[in-house]
């Protein structure tokens, strides 16, 4: 049970942290339509993470003496308890960096949910089938932006190439399973993420080709996020995200 809970929290945390990052674009997008687009994507991500947190909270409450809610899981856990992918906590940077981060993550989510909708866990299968429809739009949108920036002006190309180099070391973690993921794969609950790697590479390569940019060479990959070992950036995100509930416990609207 503990491994299933860890697995669900990992899915929820990655979405929540990327939500917090993307939400900072609200009111600052390059043009109104794209400001609306990134915040709409963010709304989908927070909705999906709520579904995962609610499910995790139900399982925790049923299997332990503690009493948690979707809110306490998001607002009252510490940095070392967060299991989000390192990719999702990386800085917004410029628009190119935000786009590349979203594109890498959306393509990963797409293939993950496509398999997870057949999970033996009915709740996870249901969340995945629903989320997949949303993520399909995110892949299209972020892919179009990768092409537009890569095959755009000299400056946009330079910026997106810089963003790719910056974020590339955080992509390997998506396909390296932790112990709790491996046990969920053998239980027929989680898709085998090592098998998603080829599909992910193919989609990314296709879009990059159209964008006239090349894939970086496989290099050193950062890991740890899924086990609670994060880059220094997560602490700053959580201090913003959790400030209100930490300072005024149980505050409500």
């Amino acid at each position: 049970m503990e491994q299933l809970i860890n697995y669900i929290l990992q899915l929820a945390d990655s979405n929540l942290i990327l939500t917090q990052r993307n939400a900072a674009w609200c009111g600052h997008g390059p043009i109104l339509e794209q400001d609306i687009a990134i915040t709409n994507i963010t709304l989908d991500l927070i909705g999906q993470s709520r579904n995962f947190y609610q499910y995790a909270a139900k399982l925790i409450n049923e299997s332990t003496d503690t009493k948690v809610t979707e809110d306490s899981l998001a607002y009252l856990r510490t940095e070392r308890e967060f299991k989000n992918l390192l990719l999702t906590e990386q800085e917004n940077g410029d628009w190119a960096q935000t786009i590349v981060r979203q594109f890498f993550y959306s393509v990963y989510q797409y293939f993950l949910y496509e398999k997870m909708q057949h999970s033996r866990d009915e709740q996870l299968a249901g969340i995945a089938a629903k989320s997949l429809k949303e993520v399909t739009y995110h892949v299209t949108w972020s892919g179009e932006w990768v092409i537009r920036l890569g095959d755009g002006t000299a400056e946009s190309k330079e910026r997106i190439e810089k963003a790719i180099i910056e974020l590339w070391p955080y992509t390997g973690e998506m396909f390296l399973p932790e112990a709790y993921e491996i046990s969920m794969v053998s239980a027929g609950i989680a898709p085998d993420i090592t098998l998603l790697k080829n599909e992910w590479y193919k989609k990314v390569t296709d879009i990059f080709e159209e964008a006239t940019i090349s894939l970086p060479k496989d290099g050193f990959m950062q890991t740890g996020g899924k086990n609670g070992v994060h880059t220094e950036k997560l602490g700053y995100i959580l201090s913003d995200l959790q400030y209100l509930q930490r300072t005024y416990p149980n505050a409500t609207w």
């Binding site: 339509e33 794209q34 609306i36 687009a37 709409n40 994507i41 989908d44 299209t140 949108w141």
Partner: peptide, 9 residues
Amino acid sequence: LLSQFGSTA
């Protein structure tokens, strides 16, 4: 098409 995302999700 102007934008894949509009006034609501």
